[in-house]
Simulated assay, not measured.
Amino acid sequence: MPSREPTRRDVLTFGGLATVAALSGCSQRYRSADGSSDHLVLSLSEQEGSLRDRYVADLTETRPPWDEEAFDATLDGTTYTTRHHTPFRTRGEEEPTYAQRNGTYYRLDSQIVDEKTVEHPLLRLYNVEDEPEGAEVVSHSSLTQVDKRAVQIARFAARARDNSGGVPWGLVERDGYVYRSPDAIETSDLLDESGASYVEHRDTVYEVRITRELFHEAVYRADIDRVAESDSQMETILRAAVLDSRISRAELSENERGILQEAMWESYSEQHPYSEAYSGVLKKLDQWAYLDGNIERDGRIESGLQQRYLLYDDRYFSYTLRFLSEETT
């Protein structure tokens, strides 16, 4: 199995533990709190279709509208920029996104090329214990569509101020909702000087407070690169980009095949030291960290619910490796 270049995740994670691992040596196998070895659990899930089905986006259906606009403009040689949101945002740091047009495949990306300081209206809501006499209270259902969304999001922050629980940061900003779109600002009733001072949502009355605040926003430029002229070439590129392992059934022993089959049905686990067959599977998956004597350090670097991708003959699988204590297996 050829080695792959270290990813940013590998570098960041290993950097924090490298010094400790070097000082600790490689003689201690992992032990749980009660002294028993944890189980290393392998789980496989078949992925239907090709990698193109997963990574080549249909911008007309699955992406925000500005992605299709960005693609069309950039393909025509026009510079397309956005603020606050990223063109062609991907599923994850290491998962590229591609698009296809007239038989040609393009990799979608973006770069920060500037910063703008802009002013946006911001809606914050505050709980009201007693409904104010004589004040106009509007119901959530009577609001414009953009104000309905703003109230729903700002309400998360208002509700969390006096209670435990999470807030969907990213939707909630600066303890409220930011109106960024010119269309949203124009169609909002709450932002108008004569807008309501109180709003009712789910039997709770909130005070409406509007401020106008400065935001420093990155300017993103949409970039596209031609990468393939055929389906097969695109599939080859994606295999090189996303696959962690490739295994041929013919190269496996009968016991190794049985382990993979069981991992496909539900999961397969063993305690360290692993059997010859399980060790063989881990080697073929190129997961050598789990075979090191110091699993507590080296194996734990790789452990978790992070998905990896395997080509098993001509079938794609996602798989995870994780440690579970004896009590939970």
Rank of each mutant, 00 (worst) to 15 (best):
Y126D: 03
L171M: 11
S27A: 12
S279K: 15
T62E: 14
L324D: 09
T328Q: 12
G16W: 05
A21H: 06
T104Q: 08
S232K: 06
L125C: 01
S197N: 13
G293D: 09
T82P: 02
V151Q: 03
L42P: 03
R91Q: 11
D175A: 01
Q307W: 07
Q28Y: 10
P168I: 13
L44S: 05
T320G: 04
R239I: 01
Y177Q: 00
L17T: 06
H216W: 09
Y290P: 00
S3L: 12
A241F: 05
P96C: 08
T320H: 04
E131I: 10
L143W: 02
R8Y: 09
E266R: 10
T90V: 09
S303I: 01
E69M: 13
F14W: 07
A240P: 00
L260M: 09
S181N: 13
V172Q: 00
D109I: 09
Q233L: 08
T187V: 07
F14I: 08
W265E: 15
V281I: 11
E133V: 12
V281K: 00
W66Y: 15
S188D: 06
K116T: 15
A240M: 06
R101G: 09
L252W: 08
D130M: 07
Y105T: 06
E254L: 10
E207P: 05
E193P: 14
Q261C: 01
D313T: 11
T86K: 10
P168D: 13
Y312L: 15
F215V: 01
Y198G: 01
F14D: 03
D286A: 14
T62A: 11
S194E: 14
Y105G: 04
A18Q: 14
D189W: 02
W265D: 15
V172P: 00
L44W: 02
Y220V: 01
E131P: 03
G195P: 02
Q152I: 06
E276T: 15
A158K: 05
R161W: 07
L75I: 05
E131V: 12
E133T: 11
A21L: 09
S45T: 15
G77F: 04
H84M: 09
T86S: 08
R8P: 01
G166Q: 15
R4C: 05
V128K: 03
M1Q: 10
E200A: 13
Q233D: 15
T82A: 02
A184C: 07
V199K: 01
L75W: 05
A218P: 01
V113M: 07
T62H: 12
E136I: 09
F156G: 00
D223P: 00
K283I: 12
D67S: 06
L17A: 06
H216P: 02
T78F: 14
R315D: 12
V205L: 13
S248Q: 14
D38P: 15
G176L: 00
V219W: 09
K284R: 15
L171E: 06
V56A: 04
P182N: 07
A33N: 12
Y220W: 12
L190D: 00
Y55L: 11
R257M: 02
W288G: 08
H272K: 11
S267K: 10
D58M: 09
E213Y: 01
P273I: 13
I224C: 03
Y80Q: 04
D114Y: 05
Q261S: 10
E200W: 02
Q47K: 07
G304P: 07
E326R: 08
P96S: 14
Q152M: 10
G304T: 10
Y105D: 04
S142C: 06
